[in-house]
Design a protein around this nucleic acid. Sequence first.
DNA 1: TTAATATCTATAGCCACTATAGAGTCAAGA
DNA 2: TCTTGACTCTATAGTGGCTATAGATATTAA
Lengths: 132, 132
Amino acid sequence: MKIGQVSKKTDLPVQTIRYYETQNLIKSAGRTEGNFRVYDSKVIDQLEFIKHCRHLDLSLSDIKRINELRDNPNAVCEEVNELINDQVKLVKIKMKELRHLKTQLEALTNSCSNNQKVGDCGIIKSLQECDC
Amino acid sequence: MKIGQVSKKTDLPVQTIRYYETQNLIKSAGRTEGNFRVYDSKVIDQLEFIKHCRHLDLSLSDIKRINELRDNPNAVCEEVNELINDQVKLVKIKMKELRHLKTQLEALTNSCSNNQKVGDCGIIKSLQECDC
DNA sequence: TTAATATCTATAGCCACTATAGAGTCAAGA
DNA sequence: TCTTGACTCTATAGTGGCTATAGATATTAA
Ligand SMILES: [Zn+2]
Ligand SMILES: [Zn+2]
Ligand SMILES: [Zn+2]
Ligand SMILES: [Zn+2]
């Protein structure tokens, strides 16, 4: 299988697959005589795994670590658990920040009736005076 | 006033102030004989304005646009309004994504009792099988 | 044979900074 | 006056996770 076909099967851009190789998330593939990468079907599963991890917004280094852990199926899974818990914490922090942001932005839109002069616009004024 | 003092007053790193200059968010400052930047107190307000906009996660190009609009105090403030509304939309989209993420991550943590073998860990299994 | 398509490497760009290196400037104390 | 240390300067690279481009080579289909 060449990289284009892997790309179609996984719905990942060719560039991204090559990028994952440079980051050692997948092994460097074998090559044809003409220097084209050749894959066997195992890589599909590996890339799907990476994709799912990325859906969860795990960093590539986290994913690398999870892959390492997967290679020791007899080890205790505590570290996997921690990684996911840390990610939950991160997401919660980001959500909190966004809620704060939303409140502030909506207060701003309420301070402007949309047909004022820029010089009188409540948004501009609030941005000058805000004490956050 | 030299850049270090501006930095202290605004609580912005010196590098950031210079960076804003390269991005034309503030005018390039005057210089001493020894080529040090010299500012008057106006720049403090300008930087505070930028800071407040950044608190709202407005992009530097948005901030640049808002600054341009501020220079036409007689224009209608519709565009300011739109910028903020677009930002609200962005924030809402991001919040939705994060809520989805949180749900998925918490389902993952529930699928693992933390003292399993990696080979049996529900998190790993879910990441292999997930169909999102 | 030729044209289109696929692949290769290397490099730059995105965003908003942050960090570093190496050189120059300035102020205060001995 | 000299020196030390703090401050500033420019230029450059790094962050993360891709994405886009250029220019060369390889393969495939008509
Ligand atoms: Zn998934
Ligand atoms: Zn307004
Ligand atoms: Zn503010
Ligand atoms: Zn587990």
